[in-house]
């Protein structure tokens, strides 16, 4: 019982509910004889697909700016990079890496500006970040209408502006997924995708052990301490935000190549929330995150969503439980994290 209480304290009630729910779904899936291997393949694929977007949360949290709800800003940068790779008529890995190469400097520059802003609003980073993300997406809606693209794959055949969804099927859809992919039994392993995620995680791990990474941790953990050790806290926060924005940009390109489409206009608006929720489910809080939280959280969250859909279809035939589960779980865990962040200080 004591052990159980300890576990409860460490995981928190919200996480326990989610894990129990996950287990319940797993059992249900077995009971109603859903093809487990297919569900597992799908979950692994989606973990790789979302992983980098979730990883983008890490530098933000560690540098002390909290959950980066402003990630749509990075996503837009990634989309711009992606569109230019198509505009240049590139295919396959060349196309994919060109998209990444274009979006990184762009995201770094935009992230720098966004970071300056975030440093001005200490204490309200999350709220301001959310609305800066929303504003950027809606401003970019006008941008998509006005930026001159010539590729017929991007433009509407008639009228102005770019298409709402841009197919990648003839360019670099699933280049990562299909790279060296293999099957274990019925379970498909998208090697390239997972490898790419792991490489990014490795880079992050290395970064966090470098001098900038360690000082960033200190700045995030206790800004006053950092100041007293001669660390420039604002600079660390800025670095965190830039890194987060860049990862957001790379993340959306990885996402899109797996999904097969770039989705423009309003669609990046809400993409920050599942990423935030994933890392929180993995065990992160508003001021502490690890790479293991990214991997565990993404897998759990995507697993939940993958299983919810066929299971509801089995049970009620109607309606999409998956979407409802996504809304309740992701916002529930964010709320939970917020209450912990607020109450934590009083417990001291």
């Amino acid at each position: 019982m004591k052990k159980f209480n300890k576990l409860l304290n460490r995981l928190g009630i919200a996480r326990i509910i989610i894990i129990l729910f996950f287990i319940a779904l797993c059992i249900l899936a077995v009971v109603i004889k859903l093809p487990i291997s297919m569900l597992l393949s799908e979950t692994i694929m989606r973990t790789g697909m979302y992983g980098i977007l979730v990883l983008a949360m890490v530098p933000g949290i560690i540098s002390g700016t909290g959950l980066n709800f402003g990630i749509p800003i990075g996503i837009i940068c990634g989309l711009v990079g992606g569109l230019y790779s198509i505009e240049f008529n590139l295919n396959g890995f060349t196309g994919f890496f060109t998209a990444v190469a274009i979006s990184i400097p762009l995201a770094a520059a935009i992230g720098y500006g966004y970071g300056l802003l975030i440093n001005k609003v200490k204490g309200s980073e999350m709220m301001v970040g959310t609305y800066m993300g929303f504003s950027a997406v809606s401003l970019m809606c006008i941008g998509w209408l006005l930026i001159p693209f010539n590729s017929p794959a991007i433009k509407w055949p008639i009228g102005k502006g770019v298409r709402v969804t841009i197919s990648l099927s003839e360019r670099y859809a699933k280049v990562l997924n299909n790279f060296m992919n293999f099957k274990i039994g019925e379970v498909e392993i998208p090697t390239g995708l997972i490898l790419f995620l792991f490489i990014n995680c490795l880079f992050m791990w290395i970064f966090l052990r470098s001098k900038s990474g360690v000082t960033m941790k200190a700045a995030g953990d206790n800004p006053k301490f950092a100041e007293a050790s001669g660390i420039n806290v604002d600079k660390c926060r800025l670095r965190g935000i830039i890194l987060s924005t860049v990862l957001g940009a790379v993340g959306i390109i990885v996402y899109a190549q797996s999904y097969g489409f770039y989705q423009l206009y309003q669609s990046p608006m809400m993409m920050g929330f599942p990423a935030v929720a994933s890392i929180l489910i993995g065990g992160a809080s508003t001021n502490d995150a690890k790479i293991s939280h990214v991997l565990v959280g993404t897998f759990l969250f995507q697993g939940l969503l993958v299983m919810a859909l066929p299971i509801t279809n089995e049970i009620v035939k109607e309606g999409d439980l998956s979407e409802i589960v996504r809304i309740i779980v992701s916002n529930g865990i964010i709320l939970y994290a917020l209450t912990k962040a607020g109450g934590g200080e009083e417990c001291e």
Binding site: M127, I324, I334, G342
Partner: peptide, 22 residues
């Protein structure tokens, strides 16, 4: 429970409640 972060908490709670509503 979320003093100092009321706005984001109320916004997220709105989303959460929307999930329950659905």
């Amino acid at each position: 429970k979320t003093k100092g972060q009321e706005m984001i908490a109320s916004m997220i709670f709105g989303f959460f409640a929307n999930g329950i509503y659905q």
